[in-house]
Amino acid sequence: MPERVYDKFDYDTHWVSERLERGLWGIENPLILGILKFSMPWNVLALIYSVLFWETLTPVFIYSSAFGLLWVNIAPYLIWYYDERVLPEFFTDLSELLTDEQERADIAKKYNEFFARHRLSVSAFWTVSIASIIYVSEPALTTMGMSGAGSLFLYTTYAYGIYIGAVLGHGFVGPVTTILLIHEITKYDLEIDPLHPDGLGGLSIVGSIAIRTTLLFSSASLFLPLLFYFADSGGTTAVIFGITGIYILTIFLSFLYPTVIVNRRAQRYRDSVLEDLRQQYATVEQQIHTPDKNEISELNKRLELQRVQRNFENYNSVSLYPLQLSILTRLAGSILLPILITIFQIYLSDML
């Protein structure tokens, strides 16, 4: 069987990805497996709660909670996709900037292992953060039936939050992985091709992994309506918005930092190439002005001068900010998603 693109630089596997790779009952689709193996208990619990307390629940709470549950269902797949598709494909495409395959293999192994390694500190941070949000939002939850006979569901809500923080929260190592990965790559001599079809010297692959990371992990913004509901219903806003701000900042940096640092590194490389070409041009031009009765030699010098000038123009005109229109469009989409969800929540709340 031929080696797939995403197999070549896949040196380690996140434990969530590993469980999705195993399959179940003949099912191999990672999205479906993520729901069956990770999310199904929470879906069943949400269904039971909704049936028992339907008359107590408000429409805003229902759809806000549904958005969050939707993310919980797709999150295992998103972790798998970053681990098994985004990273391996990036290292394959990196051949255009970093031609040494062994160097690429070493970097790939390092950051495959970095993402796959479980970090208690990350899980603990998100677990405590989410549990804190639930704690300060208990007044809103008790009005939704989680008191008295329904207090059991308050405890299951804490269990739900602990699951999100301890299991799914570790997926947020992804943005950190991308940031550190691109920082590492800029230490190498990147070979920028001024004639690359992307018009960016081949740097579009950096913009691509940055936006793919941003899109995957910004999907947790589906929880924003629920957080805004908690804040609007008496939750401690300092806690809710403080933790939300940390999340948004991490996602923002996962896109901004890689593109900026690569731009600066590429700019230094181009300045070096342009300076070298300027010196070549000056040398050849000086030779042309030196008396030479050999017409063939004279012609070769003028052709060389044209070649150097053409190379100079090619390098000087290439854009070194690794963004294409398609990348910017997807970035706008990832930014607009939480905004549109918030507007929808405000509009629906006013209607109801």
Score class of each variant (00 low, 15 high):
I32C: 09
I48R: 01
I211K: 04
S137G: 06
A149Y: 12
Y247R: 05
I296L: 14
L227I: 15
E21V: 00
Y6A: 10
G333F: 08
F115A: 06
V86C: 10
E96F: 04
T214N: 10
R117C: 02
Y63I: 14
F115I: 07
H14A: 10
M144I: 08
I288V: 14
V273K: 12
Q287V: 04
L320T: 01
G199I: 05
F115L: 09
F230P: 02
Y257L: 15
K37Y: 02
V262W: 00
L181E: 05
Y257N: 10
I327E: 10
P291M: 11
E304I: 05
E101I: 07
I162C: 06
Q287E: 15
L120P: 00
G34S: 10
S272C: 05
T13Q: 08
D292P: 02
I35V: 15
P30W: 05
H196E: 00
W71M: 09
L98P: 02
T259L: 13
S208V: 05
L154R: 12
V273H: 02
I164R: 01
L203Y: 01
I32A: 15
R85C: 02
G68Y: 03
P258G: 08
S17Y: 02
S147Q: 12
D7H: 07
I346G: 03
I107E: 00
L277C: 04
S137R: 03
F344E: 00
Y81T: 07
L168E: 00
I251D: 02
G161A: 13
D271A: 13
R22V: 10
I48V: 13
R104A: 04
T244N: 06
W54N: 07
R4T: 07
I335H: 01
I339H: 13
E313L: 09
I248D: 02
A149N: 08
N311G: 08
E275K: 14
R19S: 01
N316A: 03
T186P: 15
L190V: 12
M144Y: 03
V16G: 08
I162V: 14
Y111A: 03
L47F: 15
M1V: 12
D232I: 11
N263M: 12
Y163K: 05
T236L: 15
T143G: 07
A131D: 11
L299P: 00
I134K: 04
E3F: 03
G333L: 04
G23T: 09
V284Q: 09
